[in-house]
Every structure is written in C-alpha cells, then in structure tokens.
Amino acid sequence: MRLSREDLEGRVKSLEEQARFTLDILEMASTLGDFQTSINKLHEPSEILRETLGRVESLIHFKATAFLLVDEVTNDFVMNVCTPAKYKEYFDGEVVQLIDNGIFSLAIRENRPITVYSRDKKYRMVLQVLATSSRTRGMFLGLMSRKDKNISAILLSLLTIILKNCANAIESFELYRLLRSGKQPDMASKA
C-alpha cells in the first residue's frame, strides 16, 4: 500500500513530536538526581519527600499521594506525607489490606511499580518501594481515578527513577543524621 503525501507528512509530524517528548524526558531524567535541598542541613526527611512529590506531579497527575517511611526502630511503615491530607484515613485502610493480601511485600520484593485497584474499586493505586541497593526506606502510594488513562511505560520508568533518587537522598540524610549524632558527644568532650 502506497502512502499519500498527506499520510507521510502526518507521520513525520508525529515522529517529530515523539522525538521532542523523548528529549524532554531525557533532560528531566538527567536532572532527577539533583535535590535543591541541601541534605546535610535537614532535620527531617519531609522536605525531600515534598520535593520528590513536586517532580512526580509534574509527570503524572495523581488524585492523592502518600509516602510511608520505614520507622528504623519498629520496622513498621509509617505515613509521613499525604496530599491532600483528607485521604490519610483512606490510605491507612488500603495499606492494612495490602499488607494482609501480600501485595505490600510483593511490591517490596519486586522493586517496580505495581498497580492495583482500591478496595472500593473506585481508584487505581500505584505502589513503588523506595529502596537503595542496601536498604528499603519506604513506600510511595499514588491514587488515580479509575477513568484516567493508563500510565505509559515511559512515565512508570521515570517514576521509578525519581523514587530511587528519593530513596538515595533519604539514605544520605539518615547517614548524615547518624554522623551528626555521633559527633555531638565528641564536641561536648572538647568543650
């Protein structure tokens, strides 16, 4: 089948658009590791999570999002950020269910975005673990309306990159915190 000039022009236009989008995405991907906040000056990781959330929202529109961080004392996952805040209870209920049916541990194990429907079937929920090569730091939850379009594979890969960087930033923060707490007694003895 021979394509008309019009068809070919349409195809070129669509390929140009795709190339433009890809370059944009690549540029974004290359800067995802740079956090504006200076990690060694922070006192808690919420700022890192908020900055991460800004990046996630520039890519994917979620109805609500939540970050759970691992409590290093109890090893439980505790909700640290939830936007909008009114969804906190909703997420809490979902998390209990996800733990009971094994999806939560599957998400930790698989280390990639997992999408499931909410209990009331009103929403789709994306889970992605926040993990570095050495430690699991938390879990990201994103809620989407059931009617929304599926997230493309490219966007899901970018979400993974953003959240991996977030996990690394949290790990750096925790290490700085340890370093600081280790130094204090030393400073005191010098004084």
């Binding site: 499931v116 997230i151 594979a153």
Partner: peptide, 19 residues
C-alpha cells in the same frame, strides 16, 4: 499475582506486571 482488581486489557497487564 494475588491482585484484588480485574485487569481487562493487555496494555493494562503490561502496565501492572511489566512487559
């Protein structure tokens, strides 16, 4: 897969369980 929700298209399946 232990998913609670129904996946009705292959493109959804690719998104959920990976290509």
């Amino acid at each position: 897969y232990g998913l609670q929700s129904k996946i009705d298209t292959i493109s959804r399946a690719v998104a959920v369980i990976g290509s």
